[in-house]
Design a binder for these strands. Sequence first.
DNA 1: AGAAAAATTAACCAAATGGTTAAACCAGAT
DNA 2: ATCTGGTTTAACCATTTGGTTAATTTTTCT
Lengths: 200, 200
Amino acid sequence: MEKVTEIKILEAAKKVFVDKGMDGARMQEIADQAGINKALLHYYFRTKAQLFDKIFSVAMESIFNPINESLENDGNLFTFIDTFVDNYITVLSENPHLPNFILNEINKNPERMVKLVSLNLNIAKLKQLIDEGIENQEIIPISMENFLVNIIGLCVFPILAKPLISAYFFVSENNNYNTFIQERKKNIPEFIKNALTVKN
Amino acid sequence: MEKVTEIKILEAAKKVFVDKGMDGARMQEIADQAGINKALLHYYFRTKAQLFDKIFSVAMESIFNPINESLENDGNLFTFIDTFVDNYITVLSENPHLPNFILNEINKNPERMVKLVSLNLNIAKLKQLIDEGIENQEIIPISMENFLVNIIGLCVFPILAKPLISAYFFVSENNNYNTFIQERKKNIPEFIKNALTVKN
DNA sequence: AGAAAAATTAACCAAATGGTTAAACCAGAT
DNA sequence: ATCTGGTTTAACCATTTGGTTAATTTTTCT
């Protein structure tokens, strides 16, 4: 197996699959994009499903690794919020189509897709940070699940809804969507930290 | 044109399109689900694209109308938050696949899909509520765009990510995902209102 | 009742698509 | 040089799929 060819295929497959999804993707288009014959595609990855699985699991890792990495860093809850949001919005900005790709494929085939990847979120650490904060009355009571869904949702949703946000908020002005997203690197942590802070 | 047949078709088409997306949907399956012949399907809606457009625009409306309705209600910003979140999570729980369907199709074809529907969000009203709150120093400064993306994202994202949330948070326990979502009817408003409240 | 119009179906078609096959090409080993 | 193994290709195949056609059934109108 020629490594160069395999890489060309994986790059092409990633682009086509992420753009058009499993159903919309065409093996011919992947072959074209990779600059090879369609038969060669099947020579390297026997079936469309096999090639897709490879792309999907890599995609899953590249979207979940940043979460895990941030969870492994030391520091208190508030620095976690800061670094995670900044880091994650950067990652998402670089791969803006990944979230939609992953969520869509997972929703279309939950059991299979979830089983395909074995990722273990370092949840315990986060839970500890949160519970400590609650005990010391530094933050309002909140479950780890709600906290994580909130912070990820606030980062990911605007990426998923880019066409709508652009169309309804930034009709005329052109690249304002991008600055909107980048500014959220500051806005989201501020929002969350304020939400968690105990009032008096 | 037999109205009964048209309704049967639209119901079947909605189910199949929303479940499998434009690319994954099959005209034959829609015909089967509607209990009719495939030719009859084309007799009522000439092409797959035409049928899809109908389904999509109805879907868009049913997902955006609740937003607009909440925006038109009277009351201050905090009651808006309460009623909107409660109302919207109810709507989403009843149509859990709609958000993924809409976002996916829009991302796959932004210009066309956005142009397909003409919905005018009653943004001015919300902007006024927010700006008033800021002026009276009842809430922290926040742009209408960030506020709306936050509140919608907090409601919609957990619906989009159901398979992941179920798999990683509620592995063994069965229907806990649903209670998690329903509890967010209280958690989200609390979170947002706290986030907006001025500290002293 | 019977003609005209509308609704519905079975059979069919062309294009697209995932996948296969057999031959050609090309490197390194002998 | 040529044999051998892996690599690449052109041509091909079976199936699926959106869509059409012509005939049949059902309804409507007179």
